[in-house]
């Protein structure tokens, strides 16, 4: 049976791991390659690396880091941050990344999703969606690290990018991110129901129950967390044993 995926996310700046809390207050959490190897041994199913470096110099460092990660780990990983062209993606895939995630650049130019899917196949194109709920607007899509509200309703945008060729959706609720109060089950469930591709729940993980809810209640295919894992507040083997006990299919080392 296909298992639900547990995905630690690492934010990278100038080749080092950092973790944004509510997209601000960045803290250093270590060497990406060492952390990646440790997570692979712990039973992480995939990893996500987001480059939050803004400079060209930093981008080059990131491509080298991708190569270093690919050299050392034997599980799949997705890379994202600042990707805006076929050429950007080619460099990352050639260095050993398995998937790329695009966010603001897809909003700016939705045709990019179709272009990437055409060049590299849908299976390596993840569209990351930052979403925020307000009473006036409902769930809307935000861009530029969650700073700018777009015209898109979240479910509509998710359906649109899947039609364009996205192979996976990484859905982050800004309301929940950093709160440790649980994933946004309502919008995650709506998106998971609306699209035919896998959906990764992100933002708000604080306990093992939250992961079970993401899978059982929201029907997410994968769940992502960062600080919860980085600061070892929750260890993956413990989480997976819990999920297995709850009847959720997870990959447990035999």
């Amino acid at each position: 049976m296909l298992t639900k995926r547990i995905i630690p996310c690492l934010d990278i700046k100038n080749g080092r791991c950092v973790k944004g809390v509510q997209f601000e207050n960045i803290r250093d959490a270590g060497d990406p390659v060492e952390l990646a190897k440790w997570y692979a041994r712990q039973g992480a199913d995939e990893l996500v690396f987001l480059d939050i470096t803004a400079t060209n110099e930093g981008r080059k460092t990131f491509a080298e880091l991708v190569r270093d990660i690919a050299r050392h780990i034997d599980i799949p990983f997705t890379v994202g941050g600042g990707i805006s062209s076929v050429a950007d993606v080619e460099v990352l895939l050639q260095n050993g990344a398995d998937k790329v995630s695009v966010n603001s650049s897809a909003i700016k130019n939705p045709a990019l999703v179709a272009e990437l899917a055409g060049h590299f196949g849908s299976q390596c194109v993840t569209v990351a969606i930052d979403t925020k709920y307000t009473q006036e607007t409902g769930w809307k899509v935000y861009t530029r690290a969650g700073t700018i509200e777009t015209a898109y309703k979240t479910v509509d945008w998710a359906k649109q990018v899947v039609e364009l060729g996205a192979g996976e959706i990484l859905l982050t609720s800004m309301n929940n991110d950093g709160t440790k109060a649980g994933f946004a089950l309502d919008i995650t469930g709506e998106v998971a129901k609306a699209v035919s591709v896998p959906v990764i729940a992100s933002g708000g993980a604080g306990s093992m129950e939250h992961f079970a809810d993401a899978f059982h209640v929201a029907h997410a295919d994968a769940a992502l967390a960062a600080s919860l894992f980085h600061f070892r507040e929750l260890e993956i083997p413990v989480l997976k044993a819990y999920l297995q006990d709850k009847g959720i299919a997870v990959r447990v080392n035999k």
Partner: peptide, 24 residues
């Protein structure tokens, strides 16, 4: 009705080749 792509970790079974020596 399931999600496509088929993405993630799944089980292999009815293993019938030396390619799978040492696997369960």
């Amino acid at each position: 009705e399931l999600k496509v792509p088929h993405m993630g970790w799944n089980e292999i079974e009815q293993l019938q080749s030396p390619l799978f020596a040492g696997l369960q």
